[in-house]
Design a protein around this nucleic acid. Structure first.
Lengths: 222, 222
DNA sequence: GACTGAAAAATTATCTATAATTTGAAAAGG
DNA sequence: CCTTTTCAAATTATAGATAATTTTTCAGTC
């Protein structure tokens, strides 16, 4: 039986909570009450507190000592910030990954692009998009860089799900195809340049506010 | 009385341990035993475990479930990785900070450069160097970006202290002065380009190994 | 003498209990 | 009626206790 011993309760809790925050099930500024969560997971609050420290480090929650932990809020400024950080770091990663890319990997990445184009909802699209980026970047073999990029993708996904609560429309991702074409021709610098533009593309979507009116929401769509 | 209520025991412990790891008082792979540390700080091990999660996120420690926490080890590859990440992120930060830089800030940064040149040991140099970088980058106002850069500076400092255990020699930092000159002339792109080269400069130093022989160590010197 | 394996010691992960602080609601006053 | 004060309930932060696991020790064997 696959004993899940590489997994502490704390890490499991932090993964589940991160997922809820990203999907918007836990709204910005919502309080995370440690013994409520402990009760839900059937544990004491000690591992819950450890999970909180992890979420804090990922930028998904903020801790106000003695006043509790809240889901981090965000604004357009932070969306832009994450987009620019992704551009800088993914560009770097791609330059290092390019020499190690095989046509098998590029084929997989093309499949991820097709999956994204065919995605019926925003969740499926995000999964395929993230898969594409990971496939072409992972061969850089830079663990710290990839971990930083993963955290930025989590933030990106949160912005995206917050903006596109509903009404996802299919579209063909020309950027991904241009990146793959450049990589197949060995033009790493060109591919990196397209990627950097690509991840800075910020889309707009109308969102219904709790009060019933609509406002515009912004998210990274690459 | 300055009540230190914004400070949990966990955050204090994580700061002290981070400092020890950075200064090399805790060697790579050294075990961090939770109740030994708890006893030292006169606390229970609960806040110690929370501090561990923070150190993990900063890349200063690694956790092997049920087997304890160890000081993260590192190699030349990671030194290069951190240098490249710093180049990418500090370049980005400087482009955004440039429009907000005042001559007062640049004067302070010049003082930091002089302090670095005059530093008698590697610890004083590192402090002045970090101060220089923070001064010219902080006005970008991008909290997440600055936090990421801070963590990279912590890693850089660790590499540096590990390589230059002794034998620091004073030198004049021409890069810092060139960056300031470019910024004073409003040439932000040029300043960013120099900065990006600057932080990728990896120095070499002979280090005595525990066995008595010498090997070369590498560190970021910018 | 090196290797194996069982028992002991140390250590981690978690739970239960307690003290301290904050939040929220009800009562008192302007 | 709104503001302030007071007090109870909820919540956080930490301590102390316990179970489970790993590491170390040390004797026995090849």
């Amino acid at each position: 039986m696959a004993k899940e011993r590489d997994d502490t309760i704390a890490s499991r809790i932090s993964r589940v909570l991160a997922d809820r925050i990203i999907r918007g099930e836990l709204a910005p500024d919502a309080r995370l009450r440690q013994d409520h969560i402990a009760e839900e997971f059937g544990t004491s609050h000690v591992p819950v507190r450890e999970a909180f420290r992890r979420l804090e480090a990922q930028g998904l929650a903020i801790n106000l000592p003695r006043r509790g932990v809240r889901v981090a809020s965000f604004d357009l400024k932070e969306v832009r910030e994450v987009a620019e950080m992704r551009a800088a770091l993914e560009g770097l990663a791609l330059k290092h990954a390019a020499p190690h890319l095989t046509s098998a990997i590029l084929d997989e990445a093309e499949q991820a692009t097709r999956d994204g184009d065919a995605a019926a909802d925003v969740y499926a699209w995000e999964e395929a998009n993230r898969r594409f980026h990971r496939l072409i970047l992972a061969p850089c073999g830079m663990a710290r860089l990839l971990a930083a990029i993963d955290d930025l993708h989590a933030a990106s996904a949160r912005f995206l799900f917050s903006a596109w609560q509903s009404g996802w429309e299919k579209r063909t991702d020309h950027d991904h195809r241009a990146i793959l074409a450049a990589l197949r021709q060995g033009k790493a610098e060109e591919a990196a340049a397209i990627l950097q533009k690509h991840v800075q593309w910020i889309g707009r979507a109308p969102v219904r506010t709790p009060s019933g009116s609509t406002r515009e929401a912004f998210a990274i769509v690459g």
